[in-house]
């Protein structure tokens, strides 16, 4: 398989997952998430690049790399939609470009972002784009997304 380069982007704040412990997702660290993703990618022969940044400008650069150098994108954008300083257009236009290249894009969240005790996070808005969405499965949100990416890549 040649088209097997997957970019996984973790947005601002995800370097510290301790707040999720309080919500009942167990003791999770981003390194545990990375290891689990690496294991699943290895099963399917996917080349994974797992990144995290707290810097929105860097995140935009990652997305542009996603357009140019990768075959699929999984993104945990955290609370991008309620952070006032962020230009939503960067997310939606970059992600739309990736989907237009017929590359799978899946938004993941560790917690269920619609439950009342979760901060007001909203799903990414990419009108007309094809973006998968997995929220609330803990570390398995990534696992399920990788399986879905693999299935889509093998169909392309």
């Amino acid at each position: 398989m040649n088209n097997n380069k997957l970019l996984i982007i973790n947005g601002p704040g995800l370097s510290d997952l301790s707040n999720l412990n309080e919500m009942g997702y167990g003791h999770l660290t981003l390194d545990m998430v990375r290891k689990k993703c690496a294991e699943t990618c290895e099963i399917f022969g996917i080349k994974m690049d797992f990144r995290q940044t707290d810097d929105e400008t860097e995140l935009s650069r990652f997305l542009i790399e996603g357009i140019e150098d990768f075959d699929a994108l999984i993104i945990n954008p955290v609370g991008y939609s309620h952070a006032p300083s962020i230009d939503f257009a960067i997310y939606s236009s970059a992600i739309k470009m990736i989907t237009q290249q017929n590359k799978p894009v899946i938004e993941v969240h560790i917690s269920n972002i619609f439950q009342q005790d979760v901060e007001n996070t909203k799903p990414i808005q990419v009108p007309g784009g094809e973006v998968g969405f997995v929220s609330g499965l803990g570390i398995h949100s990534y696992d399920l997304a990788i399986r879905a990416v693999n299935k889509k890549l093998s169909k392309n």
């Binding site: 969405f133 997995v134 609330g136 398995h140 399986r147 299935k151």
Partner: peptide
């Protein structure tokens, strides 16, 4: 429904069903 379920899986096409069943034991 979203606020009363554990998780949401959407936009993965019909394959979403089998992906969920496949991971149910872990989930």
């Amino acid at each position: 429904i979203s606020s009363v379920v554990d998780a949401i899986v959407a936009g993965l096409g019909a394959d979403g069903y089998s992906h969920v069943i496949e991971l149910l034991a872990d989930l």
